[in-house]
Design a protein around this nucleic acid. Sequence first.
DNA 1: AAATATTTTTAGACAAGTCTAAAAATATTT
DNA 2: AAATATTTTTAGACTTGTCTAAAAATATTT
Lengths: 219, 219
Amino acid sequence: MRISQSEENYLKAIYKLSEKTDKPISTNQIAKEMMMAAASVTDMVKKLSEKKLIHYTKYKGAILTDTGEAKATDLIRKHRLWEVFLLEKLSFAWDEVHDLAEELEHINSDQLTNRLDAFLGYPKFDPHGDPIPDAQGNMQRRDQSILATLNNGDKGHLVGVQEHSKSFLQYLGQISLTLGAHIEIIEKYEYDQSLKIIINKDKESIISNKVSQNLFIKL
Amino acid sequence: MRISQSEENYLKAIYKLSEKTDKPISTNQIAKEMMMAAASVTDMVKKLSEKKLIHYTKYKGAILTDTGEAKATDLIRKHRLWEVFLLEKLSFAWDEVHDLAEELEHINSDQLTNRLDAFLGYPKFDPHGDPIPDAQGNMQRRDQSILATLNNGDKGHLVGVQEHSKSFLQYLGQISLTLGAHIEIIEKYEYDQSLKIIINKDKESIISNKVSQNLFIKL
DNA sequence: AAATATTTTTAGACAAGTCTAAAAATATTT
DNA sequence: AAATATTTTTAGACTTGTCTAAAAATATTT
């Protein structure tokens, strides 16, 4: 069954929104995520429902079927593999890879995907630390804590980011906080929950709570 | 100015047809090349003409403008670079790369193209021996003769193919005639112009005139 | 539980890119 | 040069994916 690029984007959005909840995803949620009019979403969920990619009941929202979820997982696999390619092979920066991967992910060829995977050495995580599903759709769970929840003296490595916005990633680059960097908490300021940290046992930085909420650390 | 994927395909077709002639390309020629109805072509050439990508006069045919030609050259650059990538890095076969490159070429990012070019080591020819335009649109001319025009005792290397069809490329693969292979003409049969050749100073083959018409040799 | 607010769907419109069938223009044959 | 054939364009239709505005359903507040 042919799935259009547009339909694929809806599946991805529903998948993403479903990660935070078990409840059906509402029309408005999808519309907001995709920056589209709610009416357009209604039309599309009907189509996806006919194609058995989602379960959908009028006014109640959408849930991915197994087929739909497999399709979404495959898109995420492709997206993240391309991100690794762009970063590792073409030396793009952290914050530049997302938009290009967004286009590349729509090329549908299992052979291409699997060969790319092999070429890259079967990476398990992408440049943001997000897990890459394998050809069967299984992905490794990342063992992580949110930096903001840790305390004085705690240390570990940066294994992922929650935010993916360009500005956030650029900011991290500026304070040389890259994936894998070693982080030690020197002090947690009660007042605004900001943290004084040492990056790679070398450079001291003070980061806001908003930042530390978005960093995943492995102790 | 935004050029749609569909418009890009028309530009490529017109470019391809223009290689063989200086005359304007007719609606029917384009329709045949793209396997589309002539009416659709008429609609599209009007659009391309408005966008100043082609010169078009009703009933007379289309010629690429400088802008249109630059755009087409850039598409060919991307197509051929992706073919090199697929073959050299992802070990696809000769006959498998075309369709995927056809999709990849529509991703529009000069940065991506140029970095891919660098990653591949600035190749000058693609896996079919066709020249790859550089970032300025210049391409090297291939120094070549058509195998069918050569005679007993002539020898050289296979530097390109004229046909790009899967079946032709698969056939070449079967008789281990790959790009760069050494070829010597042992005998030319008057009767049907077929050739007895030795490939890589080792394997003898008899190839039809239809095949030798489609092989480019550098003496 | 009635009134009000919000969400979702329906209805109708539009652009892009395609098609078929008919009309118009051009080219070829006799 | 008239008749015929071919090519090209026009006219009108269809699909996909989007939108806005209005109607309907659901949720929240008082």
